[in-house]
Simulated scan of single mutants.
Amino acid sequence: MTKRTEITRALLLRAARTEFAAYGIAGARVDRIAERAGVNKQRLYANFGDKEQLFQHVVSDALDELSQVVALDDGTDPAAYVARVFDYHRTKPELLRLLLWESLHYGEKPLPNEEDRTALYEAKLSSLAERTGTPLSRDTRHLLLSLIGLAAWPQIVPQLARLIVGPDIHEDEAQARLRDHIIAFVRNATETAPSVPDTGTDGAL
């Protein structure tokens, strides 16, 4: 891949992330993406195929960025992980918007890159199991889903957060208090929760 091609792809991905986050797959316009990127739209098709393939590239790119910035590594306990995911989504809400549009578009149908996405979460699950000193089980899967949900939910439905917590919820001080509450909740839950028998068949999220 030439340097010029790499630059073109980067410009298109950046422009497409903004467009898809605002309008979703159905509402996004290829000509708007190309215009925002300053690239002929034929270059978009040459690099990414069609609009749906471009969307999947955008989501994968955004998820890779999150994984690099917020890693579940040897120095990260569940509470610290939640805090970092909370901070990331608060400052960069585009990924959550992309995931919501993806959910609306595909529903229960498999994603075009389902295997790659599953592998991404399998790596996170392995790290979480190692960090908590437990086998990778259905409980580990439930825990990761819960951690991501706690960190992301206030940003996914800001109107619900406002109605429940109050009109100041999106101010810095209120966000800091909510963040502290979530951290304390996770720390208490992961340190004191009794072990639940794993009676289901283990599978990927």
Rank of each mutant, 00 (worst) to 15 (best):
D73F: 04
H142E: 11
L96D: 06
H89I: 09
P194Y: 02
E94F: 04
A176F: 09
L128M: 06
I182A: 11
I182R: 06
Q175W: 00
L125G: 09
A79F: 01
N188L: 05
E122G: 08
A129C: 07
D180P: 00
S126I: 15
V85E: 07
Y81V: 06
E115I: 04
V186W: 07
W101P: 00
L150R: 00
P167R: 15
G166M: 14
N188Q: 12
P158G: 03
E191T: 08
S103N: 05
W101T: 03
N188C: 08
E114C: 09
E122C: 06
A129I: 04
H170W: 11
T134G: 10
V196R: 09
A189S: 13
L125V: 08
L144P: 11
T134I: 14
A129P: 00
L143Y: 07
N188H: 10
L128N: 04
A184M: 02
D139P: 14
R90T: 08
H170Q: 10
S103M: 12
D87V: 10
A189D: 14
R177I: 14
V157W: 08
R97I: 08
Q155T: 03
A176Y: 05
L125R: 02
W153T: 01
E173A: 15
A189C: 15
T91V: 11
W153M: 10
S195A: 11
D139C: 13
D198W: 02
D172E: 12
S195K: 08
S195L: 13
P135R: 10
Y88K: 01
A123R: 02
A161T: 15
E171L: 10
F185D: 00
K109D: 02
G133V: 06
A184V: 01
